[in-house]
Simulated assay, not measured.
Amino acid sequence: MRLSNLETGQRRPAKFFMLMASKASGAEMADVVKMFLYRPEFFGRAISEIFTEVMRGPSFWTAGEREFIALRIAQLYKIQYCIDIHTEMISIASTGEVDAADVDTARPELRAVLPFLEKVTRSPDSVGESDLAEARELGVSDEAVIEALHVAFIWDAVDRLAYAFDFKLLDGQVTKGTRALHQFKYRFPAFTLR
């Protein structure tokens, strides 16, 4: 259900930012950004900090691999909005290291951890140590598993919100919006989150 507050309910600094960014890019601000900037003290400020750290901070997983995990979570929920964005983001962030359409192009470590993340997402009560056996054989550490779980967790939340609020992609948002998100490492200007 689309909420009118997400269209126009942001504070003045956020509205100014959205207007200027839309003029600069030639595309209307994406629904996900509108959501983050609406009542930032409730969700946007905290998730913005987490996004920057989880998606672009130091990690065992490359930026492209983290985007691939995000894509896989969106595919599990069948959220086309997020599928389209992460498919584009993979091509930007991975610099050719992984193809969004072919998991076999990914490192074996990523291929080994994906079934574990899917099971955690779909049936968490049935997850056991054996679900990580292949990843362990490839040397994937506890820290790397936790980093992958963090990526899956944040996108699990965003995908559910995208579904609940009926996010839609408009012309230009996939290419221009994803490039901006990548360039700014998922960080919003501080003044928009006050």
Rank of each mutant, 00 (worst) to 15 (best):
S59E: 05
S59A: 04
F60L: 06
F60I: 08
W61D: 07
T62I: 01
A63C: 11
E65K: 05
E65I: 02
R66F: 15
E67I: 07
E67H: 13
E67W: 05
A70T: 00
A70M: 00
L71V: 03
R72Q: 12
I73H: 02
A74G: 05
L76E: 12
L76T: 12
L76P: 06
Y77D: 12
K78M: 09
I79P: 06
I79G: 07
Q80I: 05
Q80T: 07
Y81H: 07
Y81D: 06
Y81K: 07
I83C: 11
I85C: 03
I85W: 00
H86F: 03
H86T: 00
E88N: 11
E88I: 09
M89E: 08
M89R: 03
M89L: 15
M89G: 04
I92K: 02
I92P: 09
I92G: 09
I92Y: 10
A93Q: 11
A93F: 08
S94N: 09
E97H: 12
V98I: 15
V98Q: 00
D99E: 04
A100V: 05
V103H: 11
T105S: 15
A106G: 08
A106D: 12
R107S: 12
E109N: 07
E109W: 06
L110T: 01
L110A: 05
R111H: 09
R111N: 08
R111D: 14
R111Y: 04
A112M: 02
A112K: 03
V113N: 06
V113D: 02
L114G: 02
F116Y: 15
L117H: 04
E118C: 07
E118G: 08
K119M: 04
V120G: 00
V120R: 01
T121S: 10
T121Y: 08
R122M: 12
R122Y: 03
P124V: 04
P124H: 08
P124A: 10
S126P: 13
S126I: 13
S126M: 13
S126G: 13
V127G: 04
V127L: 07
G128M: 11
E129F: 13
E129K: 14
L132W: 09
L132R: 14
A135C: 06
R136H: 12
R136L: 08
E137W: 08
L138C: 00
L138H: 02
V140S: 10
E143K: 12
A144G: 04
V145E: 12
I146W: 14
I146L: 13
I146D: 09
E147T: 05
E147W: 00
A148N: 01
H150A: 10
H150G: 06
H150T: 07
H150V: 01
V151W: 00
V151Q: 08
A152H: 00
A152S: 03
I154G: 03
W155C: 01
D156E: 14
D156N: 15
D156Q: 15
A157C: 10
D159H: 10
R160K: 15
L161Y: 08
A162R: 03
A162V: 01
A162G: 00
A162W: 04
Y163M: 15
Y163F: 15
Y163A: 14
Y163R: 13
A164V: 15
A164N: 13
F165I: 05
F165G: 00
D166M: 11
D166C: 09
F167Q: 02
K168H: 14
L170C: 13
D171H: 11
D171P: 02
D171V: 11
G172V: 01
G172N: 07
V174S: 09
V174A: 04
T175S: 15
G177W: 03
G177L: 01
